[in-house]
């Protein structure tokens, strides 16, 4: 979390530099970095119901025109829940344990975004879609003993958000969005990966 703070400070520092290059139209290439909060849904929530406050997302985009852009993004979320001691029956077996359920996910997605307003707007709402793959690291702890399964899954993530430029035609914008994540991922008690995720951060258009 300390490193997140450092990044944000660096970003704010470079904000001044970028404004010096402000011009009437934004350069097509942009880069964004966001802090993410994710809420597990469905069977993922049964496995580990706690909201993930340990997440981030980074991406870049190339604007084909004022409305449409293509890019890629990567991120991280960490789902976690600890259960009090219980007896887990198996076949000819009973295990008394404090279970800690964790799942770390690292999605890597190709993205397409469409702006619902022109570049001169004070607030630019947009819709986007990410399609790609996610690394799912399943780690279920029985006491201090871990049962681990690492897998890649297909992931699709539609997204709605806004970009708020710091001044007209500013290359730096505040980005806030909500995305839904779905991955057909089956491991043990998880039958599908579903989560809703909120991201907030900065987006820079750079030369």
């Amino acid at each position: 979390m300390k490193s997140i703070k450092t990044i944000i400070l660096i970003l704010i520092g470079s904000l001044g530099v970028s404004s010096a290059f402000a011009q009437s139209s934004r350069p097509p290439f942009s880069f964004n970095l966001n802090y993410s909060v994710a809420q597990p849904l469905g069977s993922l929530s049964d496995y580990a119901s706690k909201t993930s406050f340990r997440g981030w997302q980074a991406g870049f985009q190339y604007a084909l025109n004022d409305r449409l852009s293509l890019g890629a993004k990567a991120g991280f979320s960490d789902f976690y829940e600890r259960f009090p001691r219980a007896v887990y029956p198996g076949k000819g077996e009973d295990v008394s344990a404090v279970q800690t359920h964790t799942l770390q996910t690292i999605p890597i997605l190709a993205t397409v975004q469409y702006n619902f307003a022109g570049p001169e707007a004070r607030v630019i709402p947009y819709g986007g879609l990410g399609i790609g793959t996610a690394n799912m690291n399943y780690e279920k702890f029985w006491g201090e003993f871990v049962e681990r399964e690492n897998k890649w899954a297909f992931q699709v993530s539609p997204e709605l958000g806004i970009n708020v430029p710091f001044g007209k035609y500013s290359p730096v914008m505040l980005n806030a969005n909500v995305q839904y994540n779905y991955a057909p991922y089956k491991v043990q008690e998880i039958s599908n990966f579903n989560s809703i995720q909120a991201n907030i951060g900065l987006k820079f258009h750079i030369q």
């Binding site: 979390m1 300390k2 490193s3 997140i4 340990r54 997440g55 981030w56 991280f76 960490d78 976690y80 600890r82 001691r85 000819g92 077996e93 009973d94 295990v95 008394s96 344990a97 404090v98 800690t100 964790t102 770390q104 780690e139 702890f141 029985w142 006491g143 201090e144 003993f145 871990v146």
Partner: peptide
């Protein structure tokens, strides 16, 4: 750096498992 490590805050009692077959 972002991950919550399960072993960091685990007590000795929580670390133990009792398996019967």
């Amino acid at each position: 750096s972002c991950r919550k490590e399960p072993l960091n805050d685990m007590t000795e009692e929580e670390s133990r498992i009792y398996v019967t077959n």
